[in-house]
């Protein structure tokens, strides 16, 4: 190996390591502190589960958790559905509207969460005369996640051979049967990926949910409220739990991809 390449490896590797340190040090610390009695200077360690107990006993957090799950599920269902249909349309059919549709589907990427939140708030209130509720929060989050779901579907489906559908049709499968027998069994991993990502995004979203939910609490809005009064023990516990679940979900995803069950658009 030449010196230049060695240097490139060294620099790249060092930067990657420092990125991991940057990204994971706060997470590791949060998890560590969540088990400590002293939140400010937990050294030497004195272990406790008190913060988790407090979190579990708190009625608001339980309500927030339930609402966040509901919100995540609703949004994920909506955007997985529209992203699946949209990506099939774009990849399977030639149309002069194709470029326009792709642009529309990617629009949400160009609008900050905050703007999605406030514009939906005012639109619902002034134009549709709807109060903020779970439905409008689901929709607002789903709009935001649609681009991500769409991109995941595109990446995965770009390798799907649409002539398989032709084959099914020639051999007598009507469109619905064709989708259920051939397309769906082959694309469900992509749909699962889109669903998971949009669920996690909506579950954890603050700004869109905040402006569209009125007084209904979700985990992020409760966390936001309590963060205003400084770092409490139950906040550490909550962050540790959510990080644990997200990292666990990614570990499962990694194993599925590693053993080629699904690829979520990744290429080896």
């Amino acid at each position: 190996m030449k010196a230049g390449e060695l240097l490139a490896r060294l620099i790249g590797g060092t930067l990657l390591l420092s990125l991991y340190l940057f990204l994971y040090a706060p997470i590791a610390y949060v998890i560590y502190v969540s088990f400590q009695k002293d939140l400010n200077w937990p050294f030497p360690p004195s272990w406790t589960l008190a913060h988790y107990a407090a979190l579990g006993a708190d009625q608001t957090y339980r309500e927030g958790l339930w609402n966040s799950i509901l919100l995540g599920l609703g949004s994920a269902v909506i955007c997985t559905a529209v992203a699946t249909m949209g990506s099939i349309a774009v990849l399977k059919y030639r149309s002069r509207w194709r470029a326009l549709m792709v642009v529309i589907f990617l629009c949400p990427l160009f609008v900050a969460d905050l703007l999605v939140g406030i514009s939906n708030l005012l639109f619902n209130r002034q134009v549709l005369n709807l109060p903020g509720n779970m439905g409008s929060a689901m929709i607002g989050n789903a709009v935001h996640c649609t681009s991500f779901a769409f991109l995941i579907m595109l990446a995965q489906l770009s390798r799907y051979d649409w002539r398989l559908d032709d084959a099914a049709m020639v051999f007598g499968a009507r469109p619905l049967r064709c989708f259920l027998e051939v397309t769906l069994p082959l694309i469900w991993p992509a749909m699962l990926g889109a669903f998971l990502v949009s669920f996690i995004l909506a579950f954890n979203n603050l700004e869109i949910s905040f402006y569209n939910l009125g007084a209904i609490p979700t985990l992020p809005t409760i966390a936001w409220g309590s963060l205003r009064f400084g770092l409490g023990g139950e906040l550490f516990a909550l962050a540790a739990l959510v990080n644990g679940v997200v990292l666990g979900a990614f570990a499962v995803m990694y194993l599925l991809m590693r053993y080629r069950v699904v690829s979520f658009g990744h290429r080896e």
């Binding site: 051979d161 002539r163 398989l164 032709d166 084959a167 099914a168 049709m169 020639v170 051999f171 007598g172 499968a173 009507r174 064709c178 051939v182 069994p185 082959l186």
Partner: peptide
């Protein structure tokens, strides 16, 4: 008529067997 109502058989390039 749509393809599924024609009752013709077809052999495709690259075979197009259903992989699952």
């Amino acid at each position: 008529l749509p393809p599924y109502a024609r009752k013709v058989g077809m052999v495709f390039q690259n075979f197009l067997l259903f992989p699952h």
